[in-house]
């Protein structure tokens, strides 16, 4: 594992580089073949934080899959009232679906992001939407969030080492958290 460097403004937590999104199908494909159907991996944050892997039937081969390591407590402290990150694993493709409520009052933001990648690293879908005060804001994407810089030129939401083709689930969740944190403060 590699520790990714972060801008030095104190609001970033160091994290390790995990398995890039497009590499997850390499782990998922044997299970899709074995059970004959897609399967889901979900990590949730909130009152009942938990993770699970859901199959349509009992896999008869060992399950080796790097489940995203989302620190539920830290995400709750960051402001997420509830957050669910679901990976839909199909043959050669992974769909990341992030849904949650940021903030715990009537002005909570409703956040949804979807990023679909195949094993070749091709991005099939990338959209981030936020609803504020009941109205949808202009949609953006993980790609766009990655490009945003501060005046000093540092990445505003990403880390220095984040690269779009190699993004992992933990990095995407961290980036979106910083984005909605800023929106909420605006």
């Amino acid at each position: 594992m590699t520790v990714l460097r972060s801008p030095r403004d104190g609001s970033y937590v160091e994290r390790e580089a995990k398995v890039p999104l497009h590499e997850l199908p390499n782990w998922g494909n044997p299970l899709v073949s074995n059970t004959g159907a897609p399967f889901q991996v979900r990590v949730s944050v909130g009152a009942k934080a938990r993770s699970f892997i859901r199959f349509s039937k009992i896999p008869t081969i060992p399950v080796e899959f790097p489940i995203p390591e989302i620190e539920a407590e830290r995400y709750s402290m960051d402001g997420w009232d509830h957050l669910a990150i679901t990976l839909q694993m199909e043959k050669d493709t992974v769909s990341l679906d992030l849904q949650g409520g940021f903030g715990r009052d009537e002005n909570a933001l409703i956040v949804r992001a979807q990023l679909v990648r195949n094993v070749l690293g091709e991005t099939k879908q990338d959209v981030v939407t936020v609803e504020k005060d009941g109205a949808p804001l202009q949609p953006t994407s993980v790609f766009d969030l990655l490009q945003v810089r501060t005046k000093s030129g540092d990445p505003r939401y990403a880390r220095f080492s984040d690269e779009y083709p190699k993004l992992d689930v933990e990095g995407i969740a961290a980036m979106i958290t910083r984005y909605v944190k800023e929106l909420r403060g605006a």
Partner: peptide, 21 residues
């Protein structure tokens, strides 16, 4: 509508999982 889950409360597995059901 039937499903099979592995569920984790605090820590995610760091090694191989095998269904025994």
């Amino acid at each position: 509508d039937s499903h099979f889950f592995f569920e984790f409360e605090n820590h995610v597995p760091q090694g191989e999982l095998r269904a025994l059901f």
